[in-house]
Write a protein that binds this DNA or RNA. Structure first.
Length: 934
RNA sequence: GGGCGAAUAGCUCAGUUGGUUAGAGCGCCUGUCUUACACACAGGAAGUCGGGGGUUCGAAUCCCUCUUCGCCCACCA
């Protein structure tokens, strides 16, 4: 089956839908037609009339392979992009990959380890070359995988964070911030990963609660070893770097000791007792050891008191003498791993009697976010970005409504983080990444950040060398919304057209890593936020709510799902289960249970189309606008009005695509992005309304030959066409496959760029078809209740039990009921498998059964004996329950609190409810009586 | 140690500012291969909305409290 084949016969549609070949073929068609390619010239910013709509894909790591998290993230983006594309926007969904400094370097280092080598065996240049080669040949595979799930990205604009263009942007940003004094060299304690051999930012060093130990150690006074102070520490090995003991200046216990010296055990050197507010008298013994080079707080104390700062560990995490540490690390500890050293030190303290006690202690220990190694605080020189000035506009953006974050609760988290923001350590002692563009003269003191590499020192002509460090991966990511569009070239057409963008879709984990920083860079370099909406979706988890991960083995391979059930099934499951901000739960042990509903839905659509093509043929179909209103049946008017409702619901669930003004107004700020509600509305329309009722009710007309057939065809094709459009963003493949088969389809047209449904403003009033449905359902219930064999014909005698009533409203209801029943009798008879017969049924007839609807009562006489008492008691129970609720309702409405405070529309709807229930009570009473009520 | 979220049918979840008799999918029960569809159709059972208290004419929805999970943030050695 190829889409280019002629499709004049309905027989062209196979009985079975085959996602695999269809999806591949359709994706190729879309690409060939350039459906996903953004055209700046069509936009309002480029001289056209389309509003631009931009989404930047969070670039997956270049070495990543697709997992459900990506599937989730990109499906959401695709739904939004396809929706806006159909709605007439000029959409740009820009894809790309991230060079992922530490992560990628780790991959290559693992390869080297398998070969028995380290990166140092290769040297920097060869290592980078090898990594580049790896990325070039096997990297970016994930982008192809995204095509398999239908991602409608503009692949002509694919970007990579370590490409030359991105380097240009990174360098420009660095130089500007450096020249503005916002990037500086800092000498302080940072998080150090002794496995990756690099510093980490605060965000990259993640807390993990651990059961540790609190060691209390006695430091004796240098001039009187019989006295001493007890200090508590969780990391005894750092004591070799102690330069003082601190007590609180107001702590009466120790006031007298301030200024005296103690002997540092093991290292056997004298250090002073100092007074500092940092020591908390209430914690432990109130005495804290000060290790400036290995603890950020101690560092601050060290600075205040101008203390030495000896480094007593190597970068690799073994004990060793670094700067200022000579004589501190005993020979037998040098080269010993820090944790082994801890045990050895504790043991020798125990032997010497210095170990006062050891108690269990729960505390949070920071770990490297890439390799999970315990991070070591370590004094070193790093590059930092001064964040306060950058944070201010980003803070204001969310406060003022320029950018909203959904779900709303994340806004408080964002604001809280930005208010307490600390400077960002951006240098990494890695080889894979953008190199810090700072140059130093080997001769004079000259140093500068430069856009291009200098030939020599501009001051003295001496040799220059570039800083060895590379930049944090996020230093390129934070420029993503602008660098991908051509910044720093501000004349770039894409930048002028597609910045600022619209929506950012990502997981909450990287709100700080990435989202906040992108907003900052947007303001800093372009003077505006890069998007007006941040949509944070949940995490993919298994049924035990554990995060899906490779190490747990509880993941689901999206491509596996695509192969088994089709991409649409995967997408359907994701979207229909996507509550605002809620985690998405999938069962990796039961793919069938998880994804079959999506497949089943696609199959349903397929079969509706098969019916449509068989019954309606594919001769030309009149446009719905050309059908004279008077020729529409109740079913026609009903399904058209249901379509109006469905469109309205989908639009409401998706919400406004952008703020109406330059900022989100309170009323719209939290609206929309309810993808699950959108999916449900569309599904209900096409399945429960169009397929279950309209198609069934219209079969006779469609299979007949009268002029009415054309009316039914027009309505059916219109309704299904619109349904396919509503569903296309969620299930793009099946809808495209079917839409192209609809009668009247013109070759080369795609539902992917067909117009999004718009309400026509017709069919608001009740159509009477609701009554038809009620009658059919009631008769079906009777058949089922009385176990009447499906094949057995049954006659239903219809009469109005309240016929004598001349009250106007009720009379009208009865008259309208009569009209509906007689005019629609053939439909009712067919769908309910019953014969309708008019005429009064004697009250109390032994086999009478009745149904209530629309303000009138009909009685039905079923052939064969029925259990009248059972019926009577059933209705009597219903009546009793109704009376109870009616009583409560009446009481509620009569209370002064209600009439005084409730909104007018609520009062009105509650009054209407009261009337409805009252009428129903009357009907039920008649019914119970007619069934021989006791 | 702070902050936030969740708890609704057997399972996974909706339920937008308090206002029809709380919904969907899956599962379950009973029928049906009714000429688009058994990946379907028709009918049905099933929830004291985590416990307790409060506000209100009215609470799954707001307030307090308790229990159980989860997430984020955090320099108490």
């Amino acid at each position: 089956m190829t889409a280019s084949a002629p499709r004049s016969q309905p027989a062209d549609i196979p009985a079975q839908y085959d996602p695999a070949t269809t999806e591949r073929d359709l994706y190729a068609q879309w690409l060939r037609a350039g459906v996903f390619t953004a055209r700046p010239e069509r936009t309002t910013r480029g001289g056209g009339d389309a509003v631009p709509f931009t989404i930047m894909m969070p670039p997956p790591n270049v070495t990543a392979i697709l997992h459900v998290g990506h599937g989730l993230n990109n499906t959401v983006q695709d739904v939004l992009t396809r929706w806006r594309r159909m709605a007439g926007d000029e959409t740009l969904w820009l894809p790309g990959t991230d060079h992922a400094g530490i992560a990628t370097q780790n991959v290559i280092e693992k390869q080297l380890a398998a070969e028995g080598k380290t990166r140092y065996d290769l040297g920097r240049e060869a290592f980078v070359a090898r990594t580049e080669e790896f990325v070039r040949t096997t990297g970016g595979a994930i982008l192809d995988q995204l095509k398999a799930i239908g991602a409608s990205c503009d692949w002509t604009r694919t970007r990579y964070t370590l490409s030359p263009e991105m380097s240009l942007a990174v360098r420009e940003a660095f130089v500007r911030l450096y020249d503005d004094g916002l990037i500086y060299r800092g000498h302080r304690v940072i998080h150090w990963c002794s496995r990756c051999l690099t510093s980490l930012s605060d965000e990259e060093a993640e807390h993990e609660d651990e059961d540790g130990k609190l060691y209390q150690i006695m430091y004796s006074l240098a001039d009187d070893p019989s006295q001493g102070l007890t200090v508590a520490t969780t990391r005894p090995e750092t004591m070799l770097g102690d330069v003082a003991l601190a007590v609180n200046p107001d702590d009466d216990r120790y006031k007298a000791l301030v200024g005296r010296m103690v002997t540092l055990p093991i290292a056997d050197i004298a250090i002073p007792i100092i007074a500092d507010e940092y020591a908390d008298p209430a914690f432990g013994t109130g005495v804290v050891k000060i290790t400036p080079a290995h603890d950020p707080n101690d560092f601050e104390v060290g600075v205040r008191h101008k203390l030495p700062m000896p480094v007593i560990m190597t970068p690799e995490g073994t004990m060793g003498e670094g700067a200022d540490a000579s004589g501190r690390v005993p020979a037998h500890l040098r080269g010993v791993d820090r944790f082994a050293a801890r045990a050895m030190i504790v043991e020798s303290l125990r032997e010497s009697g210095s170990l006062v006690r050891v108690q269990p202690h729960k505390h949070a220990v920071r770990h490297c976010y890439r390799c999970d190694t315990v991070v070591e605080p370590r004094l070193s020189d790093q590059w930092f970005v001064r964040m306060k000035p950058l944070a201010a506009p980003a803070l204001d953006a969310v406060r003022s409504g320029r950018t909203r974050i959904l779900p709303e609760r994340h806004e408080a988290v964002y604001i809280n983080w930005l208010e307490g923001i600390r400077d960002w350590n951006i240098s990494r002692q890695l080889w894979w990444g953008h190199r810090v563009p700072v140059f130093y003269c080997g001769n004079c003191k000259w140093q500068a950040a430069l856009r291009t590499d200098p030939a020599g020192c501009p001051k003295c002509g001496g040799n220059v060398r570039q800083d060895d460090d590379v930049l944090d991966t996020w230093f390129s990511s934070w420029l993503w919304p602008i660098s991908t569009l051509g910044w720093p070239n501000e004349q770039s057409r894409d930048l002028k057209t597609f910045f600022p963008g619209d929506v950012l879709v990502t997981a909450p984990e990287i709100l700080f890593f990435w989202v906040a920083r992108m907003i900052m860079s947007g303001f800093r370099f372009m003077g505006d936020a890069p998007f007006h909406t941040v949509y944070l979706h949940g995490t993919a988890r298994d049924t035990q709510h554990r995060k899906m991960s490779k190490s747990l083995g509880n993941g689901i391979d999206p491509l596996d799902v695509v192969a088994k059930y089709g991409a649409d099934a995967l997408r359907w499951t994701i979207v229909s289960g996507l509550g605002m901000g809620a985690d998405a739960i999938f069962d990796p042990a039961d793919l069938e249970k998880t994804f079959a509903p999506g497949r089943n839905f696609a199959t349903k659509l397929w079969n509706i189309a098969r019916f449509l093509l068989t019954a309606a043929g594919d001769d030309a179909v009149a446009p719905i606008e050309s059908i004279d209103q008077g020729r529409l049946t109740r079913a026609d008017r009903w399904i058209l009005s249901r379509l109006e409702v469905a469109i309205a619901e989908c639009d409401a669930a998706l919400g406004p695509p952008r703020p109406t003004a330059s900022r989100w107004a309170e009323g719209e700020r939290r609206a929309g992005m309810r993808l699950n509600e959108y999916a449900e509305s569309a599904r209900r329309f096409v399945w429960n309304e169009l397929a279950d009722w309209y198609v069934e009710a219209s079969k006779a007309r469609l299979q007949g030959s009268g002029p009415d057939r054309d009316v039914a065809r027009a309505v059916l094709v219109h309704a299904f066409d619109q349904a396919l459009r509503l569903l296309h963003p969620i299930v793009p493949f099946i809808t495209e496959a079917l839409w192209q088969r609809l009668p009247g389809h013109v070759d080369g047209e795609f539902v992917a760029r067909a117009a999004w449904p718009v309400r026509r403003g017709v069919g608001d009033e009740p159509t009477g078809f609701e009554l038809v449905r009620d009658v059919i359902v009631r008769i079906r219930q009777l058949r089922s209740d009385f176990a009447i064999a499906p094949g057995k014909p049954v006659t239903v005698h219809v009469s109005r039990t309240l016929d004598g009533d001349r009250d106007g409203e009720r009379q009208r209801a009865s008259d309208s009921l009569d009209a509906v029943l007689s005019e629609e009798s053939s439909t009712i008879e067919r769908l309910a498998r019953a014969t309708l017969s008019w005429g009064p049924v004697a009250n109390g007839a032994p086999n009478a059964k009745a149904a209530i609807m629309g303000g009138a009562t009909i009685a039905m006489l079923l052939e064969g004996a029925v259990d009248v008492e059972r019926e009577r008691s059933k209705y009597a129970k219903e009546l009793a329950e109704l009376e109870r609720q009616l009583g409560a309702l009446e009481k509620r409405l009569a209370s002064p609190g209600f009439t005084g405070k409730a909104k007018p529309e609520v009062v009105e709807s509650e009054r209407a409810k009261l009337g409805e229930w009252t009428a129903k009570r009357e009907h039920l009473a008649v019914l119970v009586q007619s069934l021989g009520g006791a």
